[in-house]
């Protein structure tokens, strides 16, 4: 059996108490919610925190509040199953329900939380390996080493942002409320991330994601999420395409396209989205938009599937997701793609 390293477990019952504990223990402490990302990593010795501050027991972090009109707020410790099944979310933010419902496996969705999901560690198949394996190949800079094994000349880590819900929340214009011992602030999804495989979160480590705030549902917004992975279950995305658009009749008034698992953070395709705005959607336009979105994607050989393949499919998925959202959806577009 692979076992966890030793640690002390603290179980505060309020956010404030949790924030205080994190501040008190500083670098020695880590937050844990469902543990579905952190515990496997700890078993492989990617993290060896001395102290864990558990968020599961904090009531105020759990549950989905608010309404479509005023905006829905999801407590960070709400499980992905609860998010995927919530009626308002399914109705008003179908892409989020889809993405949450596609994370790993049913059991993991019963444990994993949305807060943990947006903070999920970046992935790389040189890194998501046991201690012994990493030692044998020569540690990389993300943990215990100082070079990048995928891009040996590189001074940075290219581990891949692998959250399913992050690109969707970004495309939906969601905000996050962060709480620390020093106070709280609300930031847009975009501000949570930075494009670095190691320091992928732009928030301070002592800041707790308290909740995810969805904007008030506005007439005409539609959204879709497509996920590329080998199997219909278990597997992390090796490409995620989130598209949200506001339609007036058959004209696009507003659009956001955000790609997941193509960089160390979710990557918005602003140019591609802009090309849609004010247009009537035609197959030619979709092809053009897909090219614009897929163009900058530069996958590396550090996830499942070959990187040239992931690049090829990026184009296909963007086209399908846009078609689905803009009402041109035919045969190929479903809420999920399993290749």
């Amino acid at each position: 059996m692979i076992r966890l390293p030793a640690f002390t477990y603290l179980a505060p019952s309020t956010i404030d108490a949790a924030a205080r504990l994190v501040a008190e223990h500083g670098r020695e402490a880590m937050l844990v919610a469902g543990g579905t990302d952190l515990y496997p990593n700890m078993k492989r010795r990617q993290f060896e925190p001395k102290v864990l501050v558990g968020l599961r027991g904090i009531r105020e972090l759990r549950g989905i509040r608010g309404s479509a009109a005023g905006g829905v707020t999801i407590g960070a410790a709400t499980t992905l199953s609860a998010v995927a099944a919530h009626r308002d979310i399914v109705r008003d933010f179908p892409a989020l329900a889809t993405a949450a419902g596609l994370v790993s496996s049913p059991q993991l969705r019963n444990m994993g939380t949305i807060g943990g999901n947006v903070c999920v560690d970046t992935r790389c198949n040189y890194y998501n390996q046991s201690y012994e394996w990493r030692k044998a190949i020569g540690f990389c800079m993300k943990k215990d080493g100082d070079i990048c094994l995928v891009a040996p000349g590189s001074s940075r880590c290219w581990a891949v942002s692998s959250s399913d819900t992050a690109p969707v929340l970004w495309a939906l214009g969601a905000k996050l409320r962060l709480v620390s011992a020093e106070g709280e602030r609300t930031i847009p999804m975009a501000a949570l991330y930075q494009d670095d495989g190691i320091e992928y979160l732009a928030k301070r480590p002592d800041e707790i994601v308290a909740d995810v705030q969805l904007p008030a549902a506005v007439e005409g917004w539609r959204s879709a999420y497509l996920k590329l992975r080998r199997r219909g279950s278990f597997d992390f995305p090796v490409l995620g395409v989130a598209v949200a658009a506001r339609m007036e009749g058959d004209v696009v008034r507003d659009a956001r396209i955000v790609l997941g698992a193509v960089a160390s953070q979710p990557r918005p395709s602003e140019k591609a989205a802009a090309a849609l705005v004010g247009q009537r959607v035609t197959p030619d336009l979709i092809a053009h938009v897909a090219d614009l979105a897929a163009g900058p994607a530069k996958p590396l050989d550090n996830t499942d599937f070959s990187h040239p393949y992931r690049k090829k499919v990026t184009r296909v998925f963007v086209a399908r997701a846009v078609a689905a959202v803009c009402g041109l959806g035919d045969s190929g577009a479903t809420s999920e793609e399993v290749a």
Binding site: M1, Y9, G34, Y39, K43, S104, Q107, L108
Partner: peptide, 26 residues
């Protein structure tokens, strides 16, 4: 023991969870 197979599933309050990634204190 890494959440990748489902073999260790038990029910916690009726919901299937992976016992290899759950701590008794939780």
């Amino acid at each position: 023991e890494l959440g990748e197979c489902g073999t260790c599933t038990v029910l916690v309050d009726g919901e299937p969870v992976l016992s290899c990634l759950a701590l008794p204190v939780e």
